[in-house]
C-alpha cells in the first residue's frame, strides 16, 4: 500500500473561543497524527475529547492555535491554499438535515462541483458517478427531505465525492440513524475505501464500526491515548474504559468468559470471531 502521508497533525493544539474573560481549556493538546493515503482510520473518544475538532482542523475549517496541519504537504494556515485543501479533504457532519441545500438530490450533489467552477458536462458525470458510488443513483430526481436518514447521509457523502476529494472525513455520520441506515452508510464508506481507494477518517461512538477500520485512534481529554490496529487498540481494556469508551460487545463477552476460565483465543473483536473461537474451544475439547 502507498504509505504517503495525506493529513499530518504536527504538535497541534486548539482552543475554542470563550464568551467571557476566562479562556477555555485546550480542546486538543499537542497532537501528532499522520493519516496515510488509502487508510481507513476510525477516531474514538468521549464527548468533548476533541474528535470533532480534529475533523474541523483537517480541511482548514478552523486553524491550529499551535503547531501545523498539513494536507499533502500544504499548510492549512496558508489562506491561498484553502481551495486546494478543500478539494483534497471533504467533511460530512452528523446531522443530514443540516447539510442538504437543494430540493432535488442530484442538484444537492452538484452544489460542491458547481462552486468549484467545473464545466457542466463534467459536473453531470461526477454527480452520476458519486450517486452510483453510494447506491443512490435511482434516487437522483427525488426530494431529499423525503429520504430516510441513511439515504440523506449517503447523499451528503456523494456531495463530497463529487468534489473528487482524496479523503473524506465523517464526523459521527451514523449517530442519528436507525440500524439499517447505519449499515448502509458503513457499507458505502467501506466501498469508497476498498474499491475506490479513498482515504476515510470516521469519527464515531460505535465500537462495532471502529472494528472495521484499518487503524483506530483513541482520544481522551484532548490527547491521543492509543493509535494502532483495532486488535492492538482494543487489547488495552483499561485505557479504553478510562477514556469513557468500552470494548465491542463480542470482545467484552470473550474477556468475561476468559476471566471465568473459558479457553478462548486472544483478540476476539467481532461476532464472527467469537463464534469461530467458541466452536473451536468447545468442540475442540479445550480445557474449561
Amino acid at each position: 500500500m502507498n504509505k504517503e502521508s495525506l493529513i499530518r497533525f504536527c504538535d497541534v493544539s486548539y482552543r475554542y473561543e470563550s464568551d467571557n474573560e476566562t479562556p477555555l481549556p485546550l480542546a486538543i493538546k499537542n497532537i501528532n497524527i499522520d493519516i496515510k493515503k488509502g487508510e481507513f482510520v476510525a477516531i474514538l473518544g468521549h464527548n468533548g475529547s476533541g474528535k470533532s475538532t480534529i475533523a474541523k482542523l483537517s480541511n482548514a475549517i478552523i486553524l491550529p492555535e499551535d503547531g501545523k496541519v498539513f494536507v499533502e504537504g500544504m499548510d492549512t494556515a496558508d489562506e491561498s491554499l484553502e481551495y486546494e485543501i478543500r478539494q483534497k479533504v471533504g467533511v460530512v457532519f452528523q446531522n443530514p438535515d443540516n447539510q442538504i441545500v437543494a430540493t432535488i438530490v442530484e442538484e444537492d450533489v452538484a452544489f460542491g462541483p458547481e462552486n468549484l467552477g467545473i464545466e457542466p458536462k463534467e459536473i453531470r458525470q461526477r454527480v452520476d458517478d458519486a450517486l452510483k458510488s453510494v447506491g443512490m443513483y435511482e434516487y437522483r430526481l427525488h426530494e431529499p427531505h423525503k429520504l430516510s436518514g441513511g439515504q440523506k447521509q449517503r447523499v451528503a457523502i456523494a456531495g463530497v465525492m463529487a468534489m473528487q476529494t482524496d479523503c473524506i472525513v465523517l464526523d459521527e455520520p451514523t449517530a442519528m440513524l436507525d440500524p439499517k441506515g447505519r449499515e448502509e452508510v458503513m457499507n458505502s464508506m467501506l466501498r469508497l475505501n476498498k474499491e475506490m481507494g479513498k482515504t476515510v477518517v470516521l469519527i464515531t461512538h460505535y465500537m462495532d464500526e471502529a472494528v472495521k477500520a484499518d487503524r483506530v485512534i483513541v482520544m481522551n481529554s484532548g490527547n491521543v491515548v492509543l493509535d494502532g490496529t483495532p486488535r492492538e487498540v482494543f487489547a488495552h481494556e483499561d485505557i479504553i474504559e478510562n477514556a469513557g469508551l468500552e470494548l465491542p460487545d463480542s470482545a467484552k463477552l470473550a474477556l468475561k468468559l476468559k476471566k471465568n476460565g473459558v479457553n478462548l483465543p486472544d483478540g476476539i473483536l467481532t461476532p464472527e470471531e467469537f463464534i469461530e473461537g467458541f466452536k473451536f474451544s468447545v468442540s475442540g475439547g479445550a480445557s474449561q
Binding site: P179, K180, S250, L253, I275, K279
Partner: peptide, 30 residues
C-alpha cells in the same frame, strides 16, 4: 423493517444454529 436484534442475541442465534443448546433469551453481555 430496517431494524435489527442486539449483537449478542445474533451471536446466540448463530451458535444455536450450529447445534449448541443455548437459551434464545439473551440480550446483554452479562
Amino acid at each position: 423493517m430496517g431494524l435489527n436484534i442486539p449483537q449478542i442475541t445474533k451471536i446466540f442465534s448463530e451458535l444455536r444454529s450450529f447445534g449448541f443448546n443455548l437459551s434464545g433469551n439473551v440480550y446483554t453481555v452479562d
